[in-house]
Structures are given as structure tokens and as C-alpha cells.
Simulated scan of single mutants.
Amino acid sequence: MSSTELVAQTSASSSHALQVQTSRVLPDANQFLTFRVGAEEYGMDILRVQEIRSYEQPTRIANAPEFVKGVVNLRGVIVPVVDLRLRLGQSGEYNEFTVVVVLNVLGRVVGVVVDSVSDVLELSAEEIKPRPEIAAAMDSRFITGLGKVGERMLILLDIEGMVASPEFGLVN
């Protein structure tokens, strides 16, 4: 039984969005939004997620890096949209499963493009293993650990650290 619900809402622009609402949380458990990038499944702290939106082509910004897809107007707030797939060394097509996870990180609203969103999982401290110390395409300092749920293995991201890093190019 999960203590988090995803509630579907329709915004004024007729695009579908999921608002994330949290309720009672067990003191020794962490909640993660799970999503896919390529064949890998990732998790990020649910408390950083503001909403989940279907992908709409953002307004491109001149001379922006390839992974910065542009900006969107989200109820009067200009939100930069970054393709997390490109930042993680993957590529992906934009289809009906592609979504933008809108994050509130360090007082800033940022959208990240992922292949799909799976669900919200609650993991106890025992279900989270330390990150491996191996060379990887992604800087391991942004991996907080690995979550194991049954046969599923999740790569848990420090999304706040990742977005705040100079490599991401969004936060000064």
C-alpha cells in the first residue's frame, strides 16, 4: 500500500498533467518516482517532483547545449526543459510515453524529459544498497544508491545535486 497518490488533472492548455500529492510517510521509508531512460529504471526523490506532463515541443533557445530542449510556459512560469536521456548518454525518440517531470529544485522549477514514468515506490533503508564504485557513463556522485524491489533494480538519483551541478548548466 503506497502513501502517495498521483492525481490526473487537465491544465488550461488541454495538456494532461499529473500532480503529485503526498500523504503520511513512514519515518524509516523514502518515496521515489520511478522512470525509464532507455533500458534502465531510475528513481528520484518524490519530494522534488512538482508534476508530470506529457511532452510538448518547447521553445528552443539559441546557442543552448543540445540537451537543453528549450523552455515552456507553465501557468505563467518559464521552465527550462532538459532531456535527461541525453545527459545520461542515451538517445530517445519522442512518442506518446515520453514525459516531462517538472521538478522543484533549489527554489527553481525545471523540467526533465524521460522515456516514461512507472510508479511511486516506498523503499525502506534495508532495500537501498550503496552505489557501486565503478566507471560509468554517468558521474557516480549523482547516484545515491540502488533500490531493490523484488527482481527490479532501480538506480536512485540525487536529482537535486545533478540539476545544481555546473555540468547541467541551469543553476548558477
Rank of each mutant, 00 (worst) to 15 (best):
T4Q: 02
V7D: 02
A12D: 04
S14R: 09
S14W: 04
Q19H: 07
Q21W: 03
Q21P: 02
V25Y: 05
L26Y: 11
P27W: 08
A29T: 15
N30L: 15
N30H: 15
N30E: 13
Q31T: 15
T34F: 08
F35N: 04
V37S: 14
A39E: 10
E40W: 07
E40C: 09
E41S: 14
G43E: 03
D45Q: 09
R48G: 09
V49Q: 00
Q50M: 06
E51F: 01
R53M: 10
S54R: 13
Y55S: 08
T59R: 13
R60C: 01
N63H: 11
N63F: 12
F67Q: 09
F67G: 07
V68T: 08
G70V: 02
G76T: 07
V81R: 14
D83Q: 01
D83K: 01
L84F: 09
R85H: 06
R87M: 03
L88P: 03
G89S: 09
Q90L: 12
S91L: 13
S91T: 13
G92R: 13
Y94H: 08
N95W: 02
E96I: 10
E96H: 12
V99G: 01
V99C: 10
V100R: 04
V101I: 15
V101M: 01
L103Y: 00
L103N: 03
N104E: 11
N104R: 01
R108I: 01
V110S: 01
V110A: 01
V110C: 10
G111Y: 03
V113E: 00
D115V: 09
S116L: 04
E122A: 09
L123R: 08
L123W: 06
P130Q: 05
P132D: 08
A137F: 02
A137T: 10
D139T: 03
S140W: 03
R141V: 04
R141N: 06
I143N: 05
L146R: 05
K148V: 14
G150I: 12
G150Q: 12
E151L: 02
L154N: 07
L154A: 08
I155L: 05
I155S: 15
G161W: 15
G161P: 14
V163A: 00
S165L: 06
P166N: 09
E167A: 15
